[in-house]
Amino acid sequence: MTPAGAGTARENGAGKTAPATDGPILRIDDLVVELPGPHGTRTRVVDGVSFDVPRATTVGLIGESGSGKTMTAHAVLGLPPEGATLSGRLLWHGEDLLAADPARRRAVRGREIAMIFQDPLAALNPTQRIARQIGEVPRRDRLPRAEVNRRVVELLDRVGVPEPERRMRAYPHELSGGLRQRAMIAMALAGSPALLLADEPTTALDVTVQSRILRLLADIQAADGLAMLLVSHDLRVVSHVGERVVVMYAGRVCERGPARDVLRRPAHPYTAALVRSVPAVRTRTALADPLPGAPATPANRPAGCAFHPRCPMARARCRAEVPEVREVAPGRWSACHFAEEVPGS
């Protein structure tokens, strides 16, 4: 019913925001996320996390269950769980999204910042053809239908879906796992985002499909100058696509820095243990000496350094004093009191 050309003024902010500063595209500054716990308590699932995502850079966010990595990504996307309280700052081109009004946050979310998930079946609507879902953002821009369809085909082609004109009419369940993942990536790209959040994007995929999806993400990232925050438990994935890494444990940052340096010469005993536990594929590696115990949970975070009960280097200070994240070498940040003593660092 809407006449062509009407209602386009609202969408002035649809394109990428002009860079306000030369700083990072996203700066997470002292982010705290608290969830309601039992008996009226609050649990800090993210406890003072800070790191930057520079422009056109892939940052890998590594952690095990309970590390807060997914919660951090969801906070950035503005999708915290029910009842969560957030504090700190999420600086998007220097503008604090946590302080921004809801309309502004909605304008950023799904457009300037888009997300792809581990399970495309859960992220895609099973009752809608994928063309409808990928076309959602172009349609919101009130593009004519032919133009929306053209854009959908272009996006599907871009992410390597063969025969896009035919496939766009498929429902999610009619596609293979790899194609569904590609359709979801197309949907994320529809708003021409400047930052892509990818939460375990290849974890559920077979290894041959995984390597193709990672290559696709790397290609898109390079071609569009996208920034990407890749959340993963898999150090191998992060080591191949991340330029920088952030390692989290029990809701806090343990270590961050250039990916190659961090994974080759860890400055935190937890990172060192993770790296040692990754077996090589093409050579036979000895079984690693495993860390004792299970990952600490935010609800049950040990005093002092949360990692101390599992740490081979722990001593009195570690049990008493929460370590600050400090710069231990140029560009290298570690939250270990004894970072300089980590073997191989």
Binding site: S65, L274, V278, A288, D289, P290, L291, P292
Partner: peptide, 14 residues
């Protein structure tokens, strides 16, 4: 299993 726990169970099995 989590990466650090996976190493424990492998060691146990061996």
């Amino acid at each position: 299993l989590d990466v650090s726990v996976q190493a424990q169970i492998l060691r146990l099995l061996v």
